[in-house]
């Protein structure tokens, strides 16, 4: 029983990171209505950057977002102008084709540089366990979850209170009205895409404190973040956090009470059920 609670707790903590990843996706999809199938690969890329920074410059995973965050923002910003901007006038199918192409490209590049075997950083300054009662929690996970929650909150404030944040939300409500009101949609979109991408840098850094990375990782994170987004629905940041925790918890629960191999099964079953029963998500407003 304690074992289950412990797993559930760890899963919920992991879920906070999922929510952080999904937040980036939800900015891109919710604001721009751009379907990004490479989001998971952005996470993978961030993890490799973290690995590289850690391995070559002996940086701690926790501190690498200082470098990778701006780097990924730039990457997202460029991706927007080079690829995404051109797809806006086509149907979503073209967007999927282009972003799937991007995903394959990133995967191939990762494979060329870092080969297929998993990579991990040898240590992080956040290590060890915390004991609460009979329950064991990885410190790194706890901190990663806490940082994720804070980051989500900060992004929430940014979207609600600052001028660029408002521009992003205005663009999400109505593209025509926003561009009439003097919001330059291109800049706003590039900003949103950059921000959405940069958030994966943070997630990547946090994940690398306790995880390894391999080139196929992107697919899993991509699907996972879409699941979280489907569960939450568009337009609710707190809902995203709750959904992330649900997904993380479900994963852990399935692993501990059903079968270790069933973790993805549980997530995808939730995903498909949500699509059937609540296409707007649990907290969605549109």
């Amino acid at each position: 029983m304690e074992n289950i609670i412990q797993n559930l707790l760890n899963g919920a903590l992991m879920g906070c990171i999922y929510a952080l990843i999904a937040l980036g996706l939800s900015i891109v999809f919710g604001v721009m209505n751009v379907v990004n199938f490479a989001h998971g690969e952005f996470v993978m890329l961030s993890m490799y950057f973290t690995f590289a920074a850690g391995a070559y410059w002996v940086l701690d995973a926790v501190t690498t977002p200082l470098i990778t965050f701006p780097l990924l923002f730039l990457f997202g910003w460029l991706t927007y102008y080079l690829l995404i901007d051109r797809t806006l006038r086509y149907r979503y199918v073209t967007q999927i084709a282009v972003t799937v192409g991007l995903a394959i490209l990133l995967r191939a590049i990762a494979q060329m540089i870092w080969q297929a075997q998993p990579r991990a950083l040898p240590y992080s300054m956040i290590q060890g366990n915390i004991q609460i009662g009979g329950i064991n929690i990885l410190t790194s996970r706890l901190i990663a979850a806490a940082v994720s929650v804070v980051a989500i909150f900060l992004v929430y404030l940014f979207l609600m209170k600052t001028w660029p944040g408002r521009a992003i939300r205005a663009a999400s409500d109505d593209l025509d009205a926003a561009s009439l009101a003097g919001v330059n949609y291109r800049q706003t979109y590039a900003l949103s895409f950059g921000l959405g991408t940069a958030l994966t840098a943070l997630a990547g850094g946090l994940l690398m404190t306790f995880q390894q990375v391999d080139p196929t990782m992107g697919l899993r994170f991509g699907l996972l973040s879409w699941c979280v987004l489907a569960l939450a629905g568009l337009g609710s940041v707190p809902g995203l956090l709750i959904s992330g925790v649900i997904v993380g918890g479900a994963e852990a629960l399935a692993m501990s009470v059903w079968d270790p191999r069933s973790r993805l099964l549980a997530v995808y079953l939730i995903f498909i059920l949500v699509l059937w029963l609540r296409p707007r998500g649990l907290f969605g407003r549109k």
Partner: peptide, 22 residues
């Protein structure tokens, strides 16, 4: 020699066709 280069080239071809020949 370059295990994944073909995948990368393939991906680029894909992106280019999708963008310019929708």
């Amino acid at each position: 020699s370059l295990e994944s280069l073909y995948l990368a080239i393939y991906a680029v071809v894909l992106i280019v066709i999708a963008l310019f020949r929708p």
